[in-house]
Nucleic acid binder design. Structure first.
Lengths: 209, 209
DNA sequence: GTCTATAGAGTGATAGAC
DNA sequence: GTCTATCACTCTATAGAC
């Protein structure tokens, strides 16, 4: 039996995802849940506390994901790693879509999230570095090239849902996001890299059920 | 002498850029301008009318930009073309940053904007196609590669400001956006392309004053 | 824990005087 | 065109009964 507090969080996430953070009031959440606004504010003094708890959830799931990461960053493992990450983006869609408003209204959360972003970009850079060291990718063609590539890869993944919505596409179509990401990598593969690549990520496209 | 109507638009843009679309009320705009709310609603019946007029401005400036485009899509011309486009992004920052909220609250504008986005991506794709035809870029390495590249280039440029803000960077740093964009192109250059490229975009980085 | 009732601030939009 | 005054509404947050 889920507690009222947990039910409030679940309903909040659902409504935020549906209507956007700024368009959901305490009242809306209470109505949707069938409880009184007074009851809701008993559990969460204000909206900021709700957002904070949701962010804690996101962080928790992120950490759980990170702990499952395969240690060997082969192309196949990297590709497989993307799946749960993209699912997380979708599950807490509103947070990533309305992140600018989160930043304006709840700067403390934005600060925490910022360090997480840096961690992610560094992580991607480390995968590229490993691929270069293991002879799968060529040395960077110009200074800072792979640092920028890591950044761009992060940007593609992070803003993919965003651009889909703006372009009026119903489906998140993460397969194309994934392909676009690998498109950045393939021109930089060595012969060895091509051989290793051919048998892995492209064959691992995961179709939505 | 600017009319009150024009002054309202100028002030609205400034406040929207500063605080975000949803955090600026009719009252705020009137106060900032030193006129009464009643006067403002005389000129603009509601907020939606203000946004609409601002979007007309954006479209107007876009058209004016498009008319100045150099017909020959050399790398140098493409690079030069980016400058005024990125300036437009900054001038009407709020529109591009809060585009999702614009979409939710003013769907008609979102619809118009959507066709413009498609036009932009098609335009980028045409530049790439020309580069391939003129022997500066290699034929696409896999089916749909250049279509995805055009899309990704658009994504980088469109969400650059967004990501800078989320990452807590004060400066928009469009030079890095530009370099990241060319990074996508350089691995696909032919020998001829490299020769043509070397003497153009990289030497055209424009520093902010 | 949960409810009802309400205070207090902010919102868009209108009426009517000048 | 511009003002003041105000209505009707929504929001968060609190008080107090059960």
């Amino acid at each position: 039996m889920r507690s009222t507090k947990e039910k409030i969080l679940d309903t909040s996430i659902a409504l935020f995802n549906e209507r956007g953070l700024v368009n959901v009031s305490i009242r809306d959440i209470a109505n949707e849940l069938g409880i009184s606004p007074g009851n809701l504010t008993y559990h969460f003094k204000n909206k900021s506390n709700i957002i904070n708890d949701i962010y804690e959830r996101i962080v928790g799931e992120r950490i759980s994901l990170a702990s499952q990461v395969k240690l060997i960053p082969s192309f196949a493992n990297i590709n497989a790693m993307l799946e749960p990450l993209l699912e997380l983006f979708e599950k807490y869609r509103f947070f990533y879509l309305d992140i600018l408003e989160v930043r304006r209204a709840y700067p403390e959360i934005a600060g925490k999230h910022q360090s997480h972003i840096n961690f992610q970009i560094d992580f991607i850079k480390a995968q590229i570095d490993y691929s270069v060291e293991s002879g799968n990718m060529v040395p960077e063609p110009s200074r800072g090239f792979y640092a920028r590539m890591a950044h761009t890869v992060w940007l593609i993944l992070s803003f993919w849902m965003n651009q889909q919505i703006i372009r009026g596409k119903e489906d998140a179509d993460f397969n194309t996001a994934r392909t676009s990401m690998w498109d950045m990598v393939t021109p930089l593969l060595t012969e060895k890299g091509k051989a290793n690549f051919g048998i892995t990520p492209l064959n691992q496209k995961i179709d939505k059920p």
